[in-house]
């Protein structure tokens, strides 16, 4: 399991908040020594999921947990929660190219590929939480 070291919350109510989520995710990833490729994957996944929270979930929040695995590896876990319409057909939503909104339909499935761990918790009419986890490949500094 993972020890949680710090928790950050970013609200997602308007478009600029997508930028705020990206910046918070980037800053935390840099602070614990994620490589440039790892940072880029993480920030890109965060951008996709924050946009989904805003556009499909009618807004919500991102919770970013900085942790440490048993072997000392830094971990980042990002949970995006909304109280929007939920997702009726999870398999369909996770299919590459499916979009109910005229998008490319790659945000959710792509974020899943980019992450080391992925979890989707949703209930029609109640809301959605998408969680992605990332581990730094190289050992923490210091």
């Amino acid at each position: 399991m993972t020890d949680i070291l710090t928790v950050h919350e970013v609200r997602i109510n308007e478009e600029i908040d997508i930028v705020h989520v990206r910046q918070a995710a980037r800053d935390l990833a840099v602070s614990v020594g994620f490589s440039l490729v790892e940072q880029t994957k993480l920030v890109t996944a965060a951008s996709e999921l924050a946009r989904n929270t805003l556009v499909h979930g009618n807004g919500g929040r991102a919770r970013i947990e900085l942790g440490r695995a048993l072997d000392g590896t830094p971990t980042l876990r990002l949970a995006f929660t909304d109280t929007g319409p939920g997702i009726a057909d999870i398999d369909q939503a996770l299919t590459d190219g499916y979009s109910s909104a005229g998008g490319l339909g790659l945000g959710l499935s792509g974020a899943r590929r980019l992450a080391d761990d992925f979890d989707l918790d949703t209930e029609p009419g109640k809301g959605t939480t998408v969680t992605v986890g990332f581990r730094a490949r190289r050992p923490a500094r210091g």
Binding site: V37, G110, R113
Partner: peptide, 14 residues
């Protein structure tokens, strides 16, 4: 395009 961006785009499916 930066290499890390290209790597990420491919994995995203783009």
């Amino acid at each position: 395009m930066r290499p890390e961006v290209a790597i990420t785009l491919v994995e995203l499916g783009l």
